[in-house]
Design a protein around this nucleic acid. Structure first.
Lengths: 227, 227
DNA sequence: ATCCATAAAATCTTATCGATATTATTATCA
DNA sequence: TGATAATAATATCGATAAGATTTTATGGAT
């Protein structure tokens, strides 16, 4: 057996297209509403339509694009209704994730990383670097999902976070302020460390629901019907 | 505009392959562990590999099959760990679904259908027709998901139910008894009708968690490591 | 002479391509 | 306005290239 074959890392065209398109959607290079025929996308990525198509199907399953029968692929825009639906689900799922994390032995490196994120976020806030703070905030939520030990739960939370990623960014930038008490994050962290399942779960839940209210307010005041 | 164009129902080969394969997986014709090269599947379905492949990618995204790089498509088997993960998520999500349903005006026909299912289930139980009862039980859970008004929540619950569908069937048949108090279902129904969000939500949650315990016990006693 | 390890060859299956058939939409014309 | 033609994009196919696995050969050691 060859010495190093733990990571498959086969790097196929489909994977390549998938990763690139996903990254472009998440960072806003391909904005919501962007639409293009498959041949165009394929040409841009330098490959034939087949792998692009397969990547698009995966992205559609993850709720990032819409494949319109004879219209091409469209990057999904997020409406207020979408945000409500997603945040409601996230509130429960993140609550569960924190509960599970608090009820088990979370790998030490994860806890350290979480703590590091917390202090970095504090710094960013002091320096009024909202952009950076938002990034750290998002990262914290993703990391929490990884502490729960339930791989499906983790994947589902990450998928939902991806779907609202741009909306979060846009609205936060618009608001130029944190979406909710940054303090919640520390409370969640402490609850996990101390094994306080109920408290952690409830803080995570209400944190997300408070975030929903903020988002609704921002959407309203910005007049944007979708993001 | 043509008179009837509400339902698109375009019936493409991909959709066809998707529906057929999904049905065959759910009803057990393609049992867990079943594995076949793409050309075989395509030949069986009477079409080329392309649409089959696209259907398989969708099924993979839904957690029903595994596409192994040079090995073909494999129908996923469900382990105890999988069941734990899925039931834990379902407990939260079904709890939320019932809460939302209780908090809104559920379409009358849905409520009627739910009630019909309840009485049919009672009959089936009286006649000791476990098979039929299990079917009605499953149907009830799916219908509940449809009452919540959150389309993503509905889709996610249905997807999770699909993933444990065969496990449910197999173990219930093995047990030859309902998985938990059928009474819970009526409680949930009444809570939705009466708008008792907290009660309904909690019953749904504990109902699912009780189901998990039953499943664990059945798995243990049957000696099956996966289903 | 037999058996194991290694290398070469054959085979099998996917990954990807380019081309064609199909069909929704748009444009054109009476 | 309604029918028809043109267009454009997908849906699907069949073929090929690439890659892994298995089989078969081969050579040396006991």
């Amino acid at each position: 057996m060859p010495p190093a074959m733990l990571a498959k890392a086969k790097s196929t065209r489909v994977d390549n297209a998938y990763e690139r398109l996903k990254a472009e959607i998440l960072n806003g290079e391909l904005p919501p509403g962007f639409q293009a025929p498959e041949p165009d996308i394929a040409a841009r990525l330098g490959m034939s339509r087949t792998p692009v198509r397969e990547a698009l199907i995966r992205l559609e399953a993850e709720g990032l694009v819409d494949l319109i029968p004879r219209r091409g692929a469209k990057v999904l825009a997020i409406s207020q209704k979408d945000i409500c639906e997603i945040f409601e689900i996230l509130a429960e799922l993140e609550g569960l994730a924190v509960r599970k994390a608090a009820g088990r032995e979370v790998p030490c490196v994860l806890m350290q990383e979480l703590e590091s994120l917390l202090s970095q976020a504090d710094s960013a806030l002091l320096e009024n670097d909202i952009e950076h703070w938002a990034e750290l905030d998002d990262h914290f939520h993703r990391l929490i999902a990884q502490t729960c030990g339930n791989t499906r739960l983790e994947a589902e939370v990450i998928s939902l976070l991806n779907q609202v990623h741009r909306a979060n960014r846009v609205l936060l930038r618009l608001n130029r302020a944190p979406a909710s008490r940054a303090d919640d994050h520390r409370k969640i962290f402490e609850a996990i460390r101390a094994g306080r399942e109920d408290i952690g779960s409830e803080v995570a839940r209400s944190h997300r629901l408070a975030g929903l209210e903020t988002m609704k307010r921002l959407l309203q005041s910005s007049g944007l019907s979708q993001v």
